[in-house]
């Protein structure tokens, strides 16, 4: 992994959060009310449910993403594409010899498509399942859609799992840049809410949908930098926070945490000389994208600050896996 990468730009598709400045405010504001929507899964035994969620989020595709051939692209891939197409990249990113990578994290991509194929296989004759749903039913729809639609010939990687996947996506992008497999990277994460995803939703959190993307480059210099990615267990991660906080020269100006466990946030925040923000409290449960939004949120807070700022982004999963990253501005 290189010592650090620079953030060139960001693209967001989040419920009622237009840009980084709005994201920084949202993290500090009281949680917004969630709109109640009805979710159904036709041709299954799942009863419709009503649930307050953050969303829906409209893709609002920029012209760069093109318009033809998008009719059968899943909603989550459209959100991913829209956020990626809105992310400022280097001018050379679209030249044939460039190897800008696409690295994406999602817990939900392809889930409604997989389930719909199963519902069709249950009710239709063999061979009548809609073929177009098949390739869309894996996890890699967003990365593939971004890579193909934006013509990026670098590596194309997808991570899934819980919140740490969102930070691991950045770690793997930094690895691809360090090895020379990629000249730069578009790294992003996304989530959608469907009747299917709600079967695994956590009662105490507001399910949310959306996408976010960062353009990362190897160059150091002014602007926002990402460095010191650590992927370890909760004991080591907690030690990192406590040790960093103990000395003024290493002390961060804040901590952004993605976790399902509000009690853990309170425990880590208690007695700290810096503010602690909780992604899921402000933005809802976005699965793997929550970890990624801890980094984007930290970048937004750095960008909103008037002096050089250093913020730690941390993702913690219920199993104890963690990933953390230092976000700083100069």
């Amino acid at each position: 992994m290189p010592a650090s990468v620079a953030v060139r730009g960001a693209g967001l598709r989040l419920s009622e959060v237009e840009d980084l400045a709005a994201l920084a405010r949202r993290l500090s504001d009281a949680p917004a009310p969630a709109a109640v929507r009805r979710f159904a899964a036709p041709d299954t035994v799942l009863a419709p449910v009503e649930r307050g969620v953050y969303g829906p989020v409209e893709p609002r595709l920029p012209a760069r993403a093109g318009s033809r051939g998008l009719r059968s692209v899943p909603h989550e891939s459209l959100l991913a594409l829209a956020s990626a197409a809105d992310t400022p990249t280097r001018p050379e990113a679209r030249t044939p010899d460039d190897t800008t990578a696409v690295v994406w994290a999602s817990s939900t991509a392809g889930l409604p498509e997989y389930a719909t194929v199963c519902a069709e296989a249950s009710t239709l004759d063999p061979g009548f399942v809609a073929p177009a749903l098949g390739p869309a039913s894996a996890y890699n729809g967003p990365a593939a859609t971004v890579s193909i639609r934006l013509g990026l010939a670098g590596p194309n990687l997808t991570l899934t799992g819980g919140a740490t996947a969102g930070i691991s996506a950045i770690a793997e992008a930094m690895r691809l840049i360090a090895t020379g497999d990629a000249s730069a990277a578009l790294v992003g994460a996304s989530a959608t809410v469907t009747r299917w995803s709600l079967t695994a939703a956590h009662d105490h959190l507001t399910p949310a949908e959306g996408a976010a993307c960062l353009a990362l480059e190897p160059s150091a210099g002014p602007g926002i930098q990402l460095r010191e990615c650590q992927r370890t267990d909760l004991v080591h991660a907690t030690a990192r926070v406590i040790q960093a906080a103990a000395r003024p020269e290493t002390r961060p100006d804040g901590l952004v945490i993605s976790t399902l466990d509000a009690g853990l946030v309170d425990a880590l925040a208690s007695g700290q000389p810096f503010p602690v923000w909780h992604v899921e409290r402000s933005l809802g449960d976005l699965g793997a994208a929550g970890g990624f939004l801890a980094v984007v949120g930290a970048a937004a807070l750095c960008a909103a600050a008037t002096s050089p700022t250093k913020i730690l982004a941390l993702a913690v999963e219920p199993c104890g896996s963690t990933a953390s990253l230092e976000v700083s501005s100069s």
Binding site: S72, L124, G127, F128, A130, P131, P135
Partner: peptide, 13 residues
């Protein structure tokens, strides 16, 4: 080829 097969299957359906 995927769109073509999709057309054929939807016609069959």
């Amino acid at each position: 080829s995927l769109q073509k097969v999709d057309f054929v299957v939807r016609m069959e359906r």
